[in-house]
Amino acid sequence: MSQANRRNRELRAAALLVLPFVFIFAVFFLYPTYKVVALSFTDAPLIGEGNWVGLANYTKLFGDRLFYTSLWNNFYFVLLTVIPTTVIALLIALSVSKLKGRVQALVLTLFFLPYVLPVSVVTMIWAWMLDFQFGVLQPLIAAITGKPVPVFKNPTWVMPMIAVVTVWWTNGFNVLLMIAGLRNIPADLYEAASLDGATPWQRFWRVTWPLLWPVVSLVLTLQLILQLKLFDQVYLLSNGGPFNQSYVVLMQMYREAFQLNNGGYASAIAMVLFLVIVIVSILQFQLLRIRGRK
């Protein structure tokens, strides 16, 4: 009797604690997710119901040349950002970890500062710095290529420059993760290694690298997911142009949904991007885990 009572009380308390979360999760995550899946099988406009069209949106999508361009641009961008930003973050973290006390905190803050800026401010800064007429970086570009380049209007330059902006913006967070990983490696391992006769190079490859690998693979995976979701920078800097050279999947989804009023088709694009991210990140994660176990 009393045991049943206590069990009821515990259940009530548990329900009370869990329900607010379940409610918010259901309303703001579960329902929209269901809605996207459902919409992708209809010809619905952005607002209002549509008719069931089965897989028509998906068939249309797989015949859409712009979709393949966007997908290719997405992968090109991943290539330009994920590994470079990880390598840069690792190098910065290694040098910052050599510093001590306040100097270290100061330098770390400097590297982290861009990360706290909103994307619109970041793109504004870079748009001005790279401005064709007045940009402070144009002399540098001119010195290398021989003439100033309107980078966000040039099909060759546009994606690499968006990548540079993105790396500059998000690198601080990766540096922070790497620093945390480096701090987790006990100092006496390096002392033991130097007694064992390891050169600085060997200390890095035989101690730091294997012990930092879990953090490196975490950074790689997070970056991959993040960079596949590219939209803001493109929207603000080049709007997909020139000649669709910076057109990405989310850009296409945005156009279809909010400018062309094709809610159903846009949902199908979102679903496919979702599946691409899931598949690629699982693949990468497995790949990294196998390497880590070796």
Binding site: P186, L189, E191, S194, P210, L211
Partner: peptide, 18 residues
């Protein structure tokens, strides 16, 4: 350290966990 002909056993053992 490596050229001194010494080996050290640390309090924490300092074994390479990987």
């Amino acid at each position: 350290p490596a050229d001194r002909g010494v080996a050290m056993v640390f309090q924490s053992y300092a074994l390479y966990p990987h």
